[in-house]
């Protein structure tokens, strides 16, 4: 494969790997209840995020959760469901990332190796 043919798969793999990592990091935040602020509970996770100075980074995720999971507002399990949801996204990005590389093994033509 030429360098140009390789370019697109590499970019795709990087995008999906980044997506997978991002979603994986979202998972603990979801479990701390940070992404579902309406849930009563300890706010040690929130303090932790404030200490690290990254609460701002979570704003888009909080907005996403609030707009997509309104029915979880009064559910004690909201953090776990949201954790599961981000795990699903991470798995899908990982799957696509792996498939982009792995699909090269699928063969429609077999050329015999010279002995």
């Amino acid at each position: 494969m030429s360098a140009r043919d390789r370019f697109l798969p590499i970019v795709l793999v990087l995008i999906f790997a980044a997506g997978c990592l991002g979603m994986t990091f979202m998972m603990p935040w979801a479990e701390f209840g940070l992404l579902t602020p309406s849930i009563p509970g300890s706010d040690w996770g929130k303090q932790f995020a404030d200490t690290l100075g990254i609460s701002g980074l979570l704003q888009p995720a909080i907005a996403f959760v609030n707009s997509n999971f309104p029915y979880l507002k009064d559910d004690v399990n909201a953090p776990y469901y949201v954790y599961g949801f981000f795990m699903a996204l991470a798995l899908i990005s990982a799957a696509i990332g792996i498939a982009v590389i792995g699909r090269e093994d699928a063969e429609e033509k077999t050329v015999l190796p010279l002995k």
Binding site: E107, E108, K109, T110, V111, L112, P113, L114, K115
Partner: peptide, 16 residues
């Protein structure tokens, strides 16, 4: 398998 003497350049397989 194929014998060693078979010219492997003259054989190709397609899975379509």
């Amino acid at each position: 398998g194929l014998k060693k003497t078979v010219d492997r350049r003259r054989v190709v397989a397609l899975w379509l």
